[in-house]
Amino acid sequence: MEKKNVILSLYPTTKLLMILLIAVSVFIIPSYLYAYAMFLVCLVIAAMGNVTKEFANLTIKGLFSLCILIFVLQSFFYPGTHVLWEWGFLAIKQEGIHFGLTLTSKVIAVGSSLILFFRITPVKDFVYSLEVMGLSPKATYVVLSTLTIIPEMKKSSQVIMDAQKTRGVETEGSLMVRLKALLPMITPLVLSSVASTEERAMALEARAFTVNKRKTSIYSIEKTGRDSFIRVLLLVLLILLIVWRVAL
């Protein structure tokens, strides 16, 4: 069973604390080398949790391309005097490169830790742990149902699009033609989904959703001794980081 996995079997809030420490630490230690190292730490944790592929995919697609853009822009346009390379009005400056590295290292460290968190923590487990800590079941409902509604809605928008096409709404051609297609596409989607809220609310009411503030749950996850151990370890690391920063 995957539950036996060293990383995956941790309690959601333990994982959250771990990820938070990684994200916060890049603001304690200013060096960009440290921040880039934190990306490697995320990568190692992802490998331990058997989610390397998804993790790598999302970081490359979502983070790296953006960071390269940011880096290039900063090296050219950040104000500075140490010009390294010049071509016409474009000039790469030492200060720009430094600023670009610092900025992208932080974006990558924080971004990849966030990506990591959701790869090693099922959202269901995460909201379960929050509900145990006192989050309202209504908030839990919003989070979980949002995640199931999105794919359903994408599907129904596809259905509406096909239906409108067969009824003669043009979806190809000039910008004006495509713009005109917009209203007949989104109107039925919005109206039908918004109208469904009434029945959704009554259906929840029919299942006693608002009767009690707290509920029982047949789904449960529990903290183990390892969670406590890791939490203490994280605290020690945080103190060490602060000491390091002050000593620097």
């Binding site: 299942r207 006693a208 009767v211 029982t216 749950s217």
Partner: peptide, 10 residues
């Protein structure tokens, strides 16, 4: 789900 909302024992 309904029984959880009614706080029935697991």
């Amino acid at each position: 789900f309904g029984l959880e909302n009614l706080r029935v024992e697991v």
